[in-house]
């Protein structure tokens, strides 16, 4: 009895210490830095101000924010459209290779995503694989570069984040009771209507979870627009990175990351409350 309590205390306690040291404390530091003043010599001067937030309301930053939201939403949509059929087929397969196939989705995780992004350059550049293939097939007659375009950024983000979409989708499709689909068919629903009325609503938790897991990281993924978009397609992540490393305006960068964190919090909160409402809504309708 006391042994298990001791174990519980140690395990919860160590996790709490870890989170306090490496998550809470840094965030508090960022939060306080965002209210301080920039200093050439020491990076931050201990002078309270709201100027950093005022600067952020500047249209320049707003444009960056809008562009980030656009790129992240686009990447999320592409991941969803590409990932859903894949996850569905995988979860429905009756083969003993299923764990292996799922493993293949995971394997890219084991390589650093920065390295994988560099590898993409070799596919997308003018003398890259894609261009050469198209040349060889006679579809184009001179080398085409996909580098430094919005398309390249979408390709990079989708490639990096696709597994985050597939895994939650896979688990929600796998939980789907096949007899419900049979029952819907039995009651006269066509394949499309079965999907629309049964499969889609029942896998919605997976869809939402997958979208969150792609959309939120996509907002801050600065190195992909840097490498593949040539810095033309700035994300909030790039803006923050630039404030810290290029302009050396730490308070400004801190303020931008606080805004980004708040934005994500709002999205997570919206997700939770909508999930709750969905659960409640279905309860009281009809009569």
């Amino acid at each position: 009895m006391s042994n298990s309590r001791l174990f519980r205390r140690i395990s919860i306690g160590s996790a709490a210490v870890w989170l306090t040291l490496f998550a809470l404390a840094p965030n508090l530091l960022v939060l306080s830095a965002s209210f301080l003043t920039r200093d050439e010599a020491q990076l931050i001067a201990p002078l309270l101000t709201l100027d950093n937030y005022k600067a952020i309301l500047d249209p320049l930053f707003m444009r960056v924010l809008a562009k980030s939201l656009y790129l992240a939403a686009g990447a999320t949509l592409i991941c969803l459209v590409a990932g859903y059929p894949f996850a569905y087929t995988l979860a429905r397969m009756k083969t003993r290779f299923k764990p292996l196939l799922l493993m293949l989705v995971m394997i890219p995780f084991w390589t650093n995503s920065l390295l994988r992004t560099y590898a993409l350059i070799f596919l997308l550049k003018a003398k890259g694989l894609i261009s050469l293939c198209l040349l060889w097939l006679g579809i184009i007659d001179k080398p085409v570069s996909f580098m430094y375009t919005e398309t390249a950024v979408f390709i990079g983000m989708t490639y990096t984040l696709l597994p985050f979409m597939i895994l939650p989708l896979y688990s929600s499709v796998e939980k789907l009771d096949l007899r419900l689909l049979e029952a819907a068919g039995d009651l006269g629903a066509s394949k499309f209507k079965i999907f629309r009325h049964i499969t889609l609503p029942l896998t919605m938790p997976g869809i939402i979870a997958g979208c969150m897991m792609v959309f939120l990281p996509a907002l801050g993924m600065f190195y992909i627009p840097d490498l593949l978009g040539g810095g033309k397609n700035l994300l909030v992540g790039n803006f923050i990175k630039n404030q810290f490393l290029v302009s050396r305006n730490w308070p400004m960068g801190a303020a931008a990351s606080i805004v980004l964190t708040l934005l994500m919090l709002v999205l997570v909160w919206a997700y939770h409350s909508s999930a709750k409402r969905l659960g409640k809504k279905t309860e009281g309708t009809a009569l």
Binding site: E182, A183, D186, A189, S190, T282, A286, L287
Partner: peptide, 28 residues
């Protein structure tokens, strides 16, 4: 199955968990 004029009552009932009783009945 969706074009046959027979209906099944499943062993596990297979009620649609995301629909209330009314919507389950109205489905067909």
């Amino acid at each position: 199955a969706n074009q046959r004029r027979v209906n099944t009552v499943f062993q596990s009932y297979a009620l649609f968990p995301h629909m209330n009783v009314y919507d389950n009945l109205a489905f067909g």
